[in-house]
């Protein structure tokens, strides 16, 4: 489902003496449907960078990143937009929303974007928000005023609203208490069971051991760090 071949990335900082920083060099791996792969490595090794490349958020200089039939590296912007809407989900560490939009609509939005009716989308959103223990009295409020943990859970609810065939999870269990961590892990297990290919970053080792089938140490691909 997700297939990386000889992927490399450099940052060129034009305004800081044109410094060129090699961050990822020659990564290849594949994730099958129903499989969960964890990216590991010390802070700064390039885990998030690699994940953002797979989302098309960072530009990839060389290689191929295939999600289903689409090569993200070569794809036109509108192909990437369609891919993100229908195939590729991403749960980032931070919630980024239009202010003043109610939480329920924030969570329902990915389903509305793929053509779901308002009713169906909101019904699904309610199920997820209940599962993730967001009290009902908060649903009509904008998540911008929520606590960090609540925002994180809204973000997860939003990420799991549409059953994406491929998912990227950036520390989904960080800043969660035990009960909610358990909910998130079972959501991930459900997603695997329905055949989603998942790439995750987990600092929580127990969580990683439970949901991930294999690990990839990103520092092996970081020039100057490995060797």
């Amino acid at each position: 489902m997700i297939d990386l071949r000889n992927v490399s990335k450099t940052f060129t900082l034009h305004n800081q003496g044109s410094a060129v920083i090699e961050v990822i060099n020659d990564v290849s791996f594949a994730v099958a449907p129903g499989e969960c792969v964890s990216l590991t490595g010390a802070s700064g090794a390039g885990k998030s960078t690699l994940m953002r490349m797979i989302y098309g958020n960072y530009l990839t200089q060389a290689g191929e990143i295939r999600i289903g039939d689409v090569d993200l590296v070569q794809a036109a912007p509108r192909e990437v937009i369609a891919l993100r809407r229908e195939v590729l989900g991403y749960v980032s560490q931070f919630l980024r929303v239009v202010p003043r939009v109610p939480t329920l609509d924030v969570v329902a939005e990915p389903l509305r974007a793929v053509g779901g009716t308002e009713q169906d989308a909101q019904a699904r959103a309610k199920v997820l928000l209940t599962q993730l223990n967001i009290p009902q009295r908060l649903w009509s409020l904008s998540p911008t005023t929520f606590s960090g943990g609540e925002q994180q859970r809204v973000n997860i609810a939003r990420g799991f609203a549409h059953p994406y065939p491929a998912m990227l999870l950036d520390e989904p269990t960080a800043s969660l208490d035990a009960a909610n961590r358990e909910v998130v892990l079972s959501l991930i297990e459900d997603a695997k069971a329905r055949g989603a290919a998942i790439i995750g970053i987990f600092h929580d080792e127990a969580a990683r051991a439970r949901v991930c089938d294999s690990e990839i140490d990103v520092s092996r691909f970081t020039p100057g760090v490995a060797a």
Binding site: N15, R52, G56, N57, Y58
Partner: peptide, 21 residues
């Protein structure tokens, strides 16, 4: 030119980098 989040998070041209930073 490109995807909005890509241009803003990983700008390639010197001027875009200046603008974003």
């Amino acid at each position: 030119a490109g995807l909005t989040d890509q241009v803003l998070d990983d700008p390639q041209h010197a001027y875009s980098q200046l603008l974003v930073s």
